[in-house]
Design a protein around this nucleic acid. Structure first.
Lengths: 197, 197
DNA sequence: CTCACCGCTGAACATCTGTACAGTCCTCGG
DNA sequence: CCGAGGACTGTACAGATGTTCAGCGGTGAG
């Protein structure tokens, strides 16, 4: 049973195509052609486009989650935690550009997997904020729900707006190392001390 | 010539439908039915779907731009400027929910009008940041390009992620007054002083 | 060997999409 | 009154899309 060969190539091609052109905008036939496979095989393996999207969601989340292993060491000061999380995010995005691009799309197209990702990010982010708050590192008047969402926006909005950014504001690919680092530094600065006096 | 009647009802219906379900996901026939009009009339007036999207872009941008009149008075301190801009945004979003929802969608679906909106927001935001910097209100080490983009994300990401937010994180419509105010306050707090110590 | 199984395909199908076209109704300038 | 023009419609069409189905070929268990 070398079943996985065709299946995996389909998921891989779909991940890439969905991430680049959008999920709804990409047809089964395009995915099949990119995977070097007949459209019927996609249906055979996944039952239809809906099943394909679910499988791609699964694959992207798994890849992302595996890369985003928790490296937190308790006891560090909050600025370090922020910096470490930031560097981690940069690394994940660099090493898994296709999965990140796909998830950025999925978040605004509303797939089921993206809702799961959103819940995970929100719950994890909230927990971390609460932990920082207990250590007295958070402004005591902070709105924790919206603080969590702000973190989420600062991280994911660039991915969802990627075409716009790359076409109108940046001078290169968002997932380029230099740009990614500038972005991450700016986020840390904003979260730590704001922009204005 | 009461030409505008049918035309306007089509644009209005399209704005609403595109904002709710997405542009690509909404067919000409749905728009026509919602406007109480035949699909052929849409083609007659706009030449096709592409033309419709352009017209809706135009209408949304005009509505948004007209509502977002510049009320800046020079000489105020930066915190006031931030608060005023914030209140202004809340007001615009409350009073023009359909246009805002549409623009949020358009930004991630990449219509031509959305690119124009993006450029406007970026240029305007950048100019304001530069002005604040000249008055010494900006952190001197701030990355002004990304600071501009951060402003943009904090304002527009919630609109683009609206279904996700309302389904998973908020306990009501994003464009509700209370929620909108909490959001705006959180943004001002973050931009002024960051979240952490 | 053989037979069931499974990955895989080509062709066909119904449906939905955007669009074209011929023609109807109404209004308005002459 | 009349003719032109434009808002508007019903119908039809070509193409794309997701999906179905009968069948091919190779592989592994009995």
């Amino acid at each position: 049973m070398r079943s996985a060969e065709g299946r995996d190539s389909i998921v891989e091609a779909a991940l890439r195509a969905f991430g680049e052109r959008g999920i709804e905008a990409t047809s089964l036939r395009e995915v099949a052609k990119a995977a070097g496979v007949s459209p019927a095989l996609v249906v055979h393996h996944f039952g239809g486009k809906e099943g394909l999207v679910a499988a791609v969601d699964e694959a992207a989340l798994e890849e992302f989650g595996a890369a985003y292993e928790d490296e937190t060491r308790e006891g560090d000061d909050p600025t370090d935690l922020l910096r470490r999380r930031s560097a981690q995010t940069v690394r994940v995005m660099q090493e898994h550009p296709a999965a990140c691009a796909y998830l950025g799309r999925a978040l605004v197209e509303g797939t089921e997997g993206s809702a799961r990702l959103f819940r995970l990010m929100i719950e994890g982010g909230r927990a971390e904020i609460d932990a920082l708050a207990e250590r007295g590192a958070l402004r005591e008047d902070a709105d924790r729900l919206w603080a969590t969402l702000q973190h989420f926006f600062l991280i994911w909005a660039p991915l969802s707006f990627m075409p716009l950014l790359e076409g109108e504001a940046l001078d290169g690919p968002l997932l380029d190392e230099k740009i990614l680092n500038r972005w991450a530094d700016a986020n840390v600065d904003l979260l730590r001390g704001g922009l204005y006096r």
